[in-house]
Write a protein that binds this DNA or RNA. Sequence first.
DNA 1: ACGACCTTCTGTATCGTTAAAGATATTGAA
DNA 2: TTCAATATCTTTAACGATACAGAAGGTCGT
Lengths: 362, 362
Amino acid sequence: MGRATGRRVTLSTLAADLGISATTVSNAYNRPDQLSSALRNRILARAAEIGFAGPSPAGRSLRRGRVGAVGVLLGQPLSFAFSDPASVQLFDGVATTFHEHGTAMLLIPSTASAAADKRLVESAVVDGWLAYALGEQDPLWPAIRARQQPIVVLDQPDDAGLPVFAPDDESGMRAIAKHLLDLGHTEIGVVSTEFRRDGRHGPADAERQAQAHAGSTARRLAGVRAAVQAAGLDWAGITVIEAASNTQPAGSQAAMALLRWPKRPTAILAFTDQLALGVLHATRSLGLAVPHDLSVTGFDDVPAAQFAEPPLTTVDHRLAARGAAGAAAIMAWIESGTAPRPGPRSRTRLVVRKTTAAPAGR
Amino acid sequence: MGRATGRRVTLSTLAADLGISATTVSNAYNRPDQLSSALRNRILARAAEIGFAGPSPAGRSLRRGRVGAVGVLLGQPLSFAFSDPASVQLFDGVATTFHEHGTAMLLIPSTASAAADKRLVESAVVDGWLAYALGEQDPLWPAIRARQQPIVVLDQPDDAGLPVFAPDDESGMRAIAKHLLDLGHTEIGVVSTEFRRDGRHGPADAERQAQAHAGSTARRLAGVRAAVQAAGLDWAGITVIEAASNTQPAGSQAAMALLRWPKRPTAILAFTDQLALGVLHATRSLGLAVPHDLSVTGFDDVPAAQFAEPPLTTVDHRLAARGAAGAAAIMAWIESGTAPRPGPRSRTRLVVRKTTAAPAGR
DNA sequence: ACGACCTTCTGTATCGTTAAAGATATTGAA
DNA sequence: TTCAATATCTTTAACGATACAGAAGGTCGT
């Protein structure tokens, strides 16, 4: 393969070899209309012969001031982010849009070592950033800001003065809670995602609930609460269980706790589909029939929701479309040089499937 | 934020501003021991004042000849690759190892537009490549090779003369098939992943089976076949169904076909856990009890296998460890300049859980 | 036959950084 | 006191490419 053939072949090497200027060789690759096709063919042929790998991306990036890559900050370990089907949906939209713009993604997951993460951010060869699920307090923010590059935010912080693309958690949650209330449920158990990343989980009293001061969890909680109070019920009567993580097993575990509660709920409202699927799993092992014995709802409308048994009632918030919008926004910023307006929170849509019905005893 | 403050501040700008040499400023960031800490502090302070974002990664990459990023080729759309929990496990290992080396991943998923993919490969600012599930015939290969950079392969091609890290599909499959045979099963249905990417699926006769000439599917098929023949059974008596994709719904669909077959099998052997979980789903909707009415096996030992109901008998092939090994290999190649030996196929381990038992009628 | 215009190619400067070697002052040992 | 070793900073020359501004020759309308 000629990989060991002494010195690396550069554009100038090739130009010298052919006895022409470097600019012309460059043009052969970048602006074919700027030279005769005869010469161009000769250049390309000779390039193949002596093993010129094409213009070096590093040199090009420096000269052009553009890289063709966006840094994608995950805010979670990779396995974590991508074992959540909702994230996968979102990033599918992101990837598609980047691809249309000829841009690659430099993936930077969070790890236990904040210092190493910081170094990656500092040395990343990118044109801009897309931050996903990166908490407002994340220690990475100073390093990111220090780069002084365009940044668009997906899902998390709300204040930072950056364009944010997030769903309208509050109204989505209000709608699905109202759906349960309209069916006649009054004993509703809530399975929530984490309020804070402190490892605490289990029943969450008012004090703990107050700790979810920002982020989607807080907004979803506010949505349920608004619906419950609008129905004239007492919020204090609603049991909220904080799941240990956004996974099916955690959802299952939380459901177990709820279903063994003295006053077993007639409906469980979960904050994500993953949790809801875990709840369904728990109902199966307890021999409960859904929706007859228990109604269950999710949030996200991931592909598995449709395939669940029974198919899950949930809230669609156009994950892929939102990812695409975020990616388009960062591309626009990079290309135009001016920050785009933060889009409105993306609309949500209640998707009623087969896991909800009126409570049995009614 | 000073982002619109006229010209970009570079290292030399800062040096000039302070009346010192550029090298010293560079050293302040890269080799703190090369200058007095007093001066260093002065530099860092002034940098913050005038908004110097730190040495430009593009300039640094060019000068150092190193980028600190590896291109990761997915060979599939992103949503596809990451909705497979086995891939996620694998990449978790990859990501962890890269992180330890201070290296980021430039993700390049495949799309419908091979031309666009090619351009991304050509212009990617990376030190080397990790190719995952990229078929031998993939149109991207020429472009990748043209880059003349280190390449390590995960899972797919076997011949290319490149270091490959793949599981020992054949012996793993042989072991789990033998497990079923030892239990006394003779009517075994096989749910396979795709033999070729031509959209065909459903029952696969000998001719179709022969089309799986390479890759993990072929090796897994060979493993089952070897076990079946070693048990003295006729391979022609084994029904093989090719699933439409490596997803639960496709596995479910394939199982439906098998279970409605005139001679219903007493065991279904799936080529992946995803497919096996789909099979379990199908058995539930048909009201069959696993393992009493039907034994089911998977392959991969993804986290969900343990959580399945009943917990899935499968084959562990150390996905994360293999991902880590592949990542370590590409890093070693980049750092040392010489290609590492292709590691041995990673060992497999039969994990017997609760989805297998002797056939009922015995 | 003249200038306007196009096609095709070249020369120069520069993108922002760091490696390597050199200069100067300072310290310390004999 | 002298000279080597050390600490601290500087100078120079790339890394590999492309933007920009020509230059040389050819075409074409009038």
